[in-house]
Simulated scan of single mutants.
Amino acid sequence: MLREVLGNPFHPVDLDPEWRTQKVLAFARQMYESREFCTMPILADALQDAGCDSDDILDHCRGPGPHVRGCWVVDLVLGKE
């Protein structure tokens, strides 16, 4: 659960601002607001379509979870601390 919220503290990941497309932001906002994270693999696809090549981000989104509010990828996309 800690990895879900904090990620890997020894390997911080940056999000290229160009990856924050309208589609990516819409998926992230929907998941955050509804607390439904079953579309994480779709977020990974949207990020990849936007040019994301970060294995850490894409693997986390496509991983089994559990994914929860506070997910480091969703927070990173939404610019939350």
Rank of each mutant, 00 (worst) to 15 (best):
A44F: 05
C38T: 13
M31Y: 03
W72C: 02
V77L: 09
H67W: 04
R62F: 00
Q22I: 09
K23I: 10
G70N: 11
C52K: 02
P41E: 04
K80E: 10
R69K: 15
V77D: 08
I42C: 12
E36I: 08
A50L: 13
V13S: 04
F27Y: 15
P9D: 06
D45H: 11
D14L: 12
G7Y: 03
V68L: 14
W72I: 04
H67Q: 07
C61G: 10
N8A: 03
L58H: 03
Q22V: 14
R3I: 08
T21K: 13
R35D: 15
K23D: 14
F27A: 06
M1Y: 09
Q22G: 11
L58K: 02
P12M: 07
L2Y: 08
E18P: 00
I57V: 14
L78I: 04
C61T: 07
G51C: 10
P9F: 05
A44R: 10
T21E: 12
T39W: 08
M31P: 06
P17V: 10
M40V: 07
P41Q: 08
V5N: 00
D75Q: 10
P41W: 03
I57R: 02
F27E: 10
C52W: 02
D56E: 14
K80F: 12
D75V: 00
H67V: 03
G51D: 09
Q22F: 05
D45L: 13
M1K: 11
V13N: 05
R20E: 08
F10H: 09
D49Y: 03
D49H: 07
W19R: 06
H67M: 05
F27Q: 07
R35Y: 13
G79E: 07
F10W: 09
V68C: 14
F37A: 07
Y32R: 14
I42L: 15
S54W: 00
I42R: 15
R29P: 00
R62V: 01
F37L: 06
C38W: 03
E33P: 00
